[in-house]
C-alpha cells in the first residue's frame, strides 16, 4: 500500500514535469504540441548517447539533454510556429497549422531516434547513475532516483508557479496569452517571450525524459505517445494553462492509474486517462481548477 503510494507520487512527479511544458505552450501560445512526447523521448535518447560509453556523468548529461530538448522545441517555434502566428491571422487556421506542424515534428524526431536505436528500446547503462535503494521497513523502499524525481518536480512546479505569478516575465506570458498585439504595444518583445516559453516547455519535457530513462532503465519512441495522452488528460482535468491545476491533476491521475494497475483490471490502465478526458470535457470543459475567464472582444 505504502509502496503503491510512493510509486504513484514518483509517477505523478514525472507527469508534472512532462505536462507543465505542454500546458504552458497551449495556454500561452495556442500550440497543442503533439511533438512534446517525441521531444521527451529525444532527451532520453541523448542521455543514452552521452552515457553509453560512460563518458559523461549524470549532472552534465541531465543539463545537456534538457537543453537539447529545449533547443529542438525552440527550433520548431522559430521555423514554423512564429511564422504561422504572423501569417495566419485567423486563430482557427493558425491552431490547425501549428497542430499539423507538431504532428510532423513528432514523426521526424521519432523517426530519427528509432533509426539511431534500430527501432528498439534503448537503455542508458547502469553506470550512468548508480541507483541506491533505501528501505523504509519491510518490503517498502525508495530509491535515490525516485527521490530526485520528486524533488525536481517540486522545485520546478513551485518555481514555475511563482515565476508566472510574480515575475515580470510571468506577467508578460499571461498578457501574451490574452492579447499578443496589445502586449507588444506595451514594449514586450512578444517574439522573444514566445521563444523563451517554447524553449522552457521543451526543456521541461527533456528533464522528465532524462529522469524517466534512468528511472525505468529504458525508453522507446512509443513511450512519448503514452505520456502525451496521459498529459492530455492532465491538462483537461486541471484546466488548460493553469499551472496549479496541472500539478494537482498530474498527481491525481498518477494515483488513479497506479490504483487501477495495483488493484483493478490493470490492462484498463490506459483507459483511465481517456475516460477522464471524455468525462471532463462533457461535464466541466474548463477544468476543475479554472478561474474566471475573460473573453476578448
Amino acid at each position: 500500500m505504502l509502496q503503491q503510494l510512493i510509486n504513484a507520487i514518483v509517477f505523478g512527479s514525472v507527469l508534472t514535469l512532462f505536462s507543465l511544458g505542454l500546458s504552458l505552450a497551449w495556454g500561452t501560445l495556442d500550440v497543442l504540441n503533439l511533438a512534446h512526447g517525441a521531444v521527451f523521448v529525444f532527451a532520453g535518447f541523448i542521455t543514452y548517447e552521452l552515457t553509453k560509453d560512460s563518458t559523461m556523468s549524470f549532472v552534465p548529461t541531465l543539463i545537456v539533454a534538457s537543453l537539447a530538448a529545449g533547443a529542438v522545441t525552440l527550433a520548431l517555434e522559430l521555423v514554423a510556429f512564429r511564422r504561422i502566428r504572423l501569417h495566419f491571422p485567423a486563430r482557427r487556421q493558425a491552431e490547425l497549422s501549428m497542430l499539423v506542424v507538431s504532428v510532423g515534428a513528432a514523426t521526424v524526431i521519432g523517426e530519427v531516434v528509432s533509426h539511431q536505436t534500430s527501432e528498439a528500446a534503448f537503455s542508458p547503462p547502469a553506470s550512468a547513475f548508480s541507483i541506491h535503494r533505501y528501505s523504509l521497513g519491510g518490503s517498502v523502499g525508495i530509491t535515490n532516483i525516485q527521490i530526485l524525481i520528486v524533488v525536481a518536480a517540486i522545485i520546478v512546479a513551485v518555481a514555475l508557479d511563482q515565476g508566472i505569478r510574480r515575475t515580470r516575465y510571468g506577467r508578460a506570458i499571461r498578457a501574451l496569452a490574452y492579447d499578443p498585439t496589445t502586449t507588444q504595444l506595451l514594449g514586450v518583445n512578444v517574439g522573444a517571450v514566445a521563444a523563451a516559453t517554447m524553449f522552457l516547455a521543451g526543456a521541461l519535457a527533456g528533464l522528465a525524459g532524462v529522469m524517466l530513462a534512468i528511472y525505468l532503465g529504458g525508453e522507446e519512441v512509443a513511450t512519448g505517445q503514452d505520456y502525451l495522452l496521459t498529459a492530455f488528460a492532465i491538462l483537461i482535468v486541471g484546466g488548460v494553462g493553469s499551472i496549479r491545476g496541472a500539478i494537482v491533476s498530474a498527481y491525481l491521475i498518477a494515483l488513479a492509474e497506479t490504483a487501477v494497475v495495483a488493484y483493478g483490471p490493470s490492462q484498463w490502465r490506459d483507459g483511465v486517462a481517456f475516460l477522464l478526458i471524455l468525462v471532463m470535457l462533457l461535464v466541466r470543459p474548463q477544468g476543475l481548477f479554472a478561474r474566471r475567464r475573460f473573453q476578448r472582444a
Binding site: 506577467r171 499571461r174 490574452y178 506595451l186 514594449g187 514586450v188 478561474r291
Partner: peptide, 18 residues
C-alpha cells in the same frame, strides 16, 4: 485593451515592462 485577466496592478507593472 486592458489585459482583462491580470489585476490592475499587474497591468500597470506590465506598462512599466521596460
Amino acid at each position: 485593451q486592458v489585459i482583462a485577466p491580470l489585476t490592475v496592478e499587474e497591468n500597470l507593472l506590465l506598462g512599466g515592462y521596460r
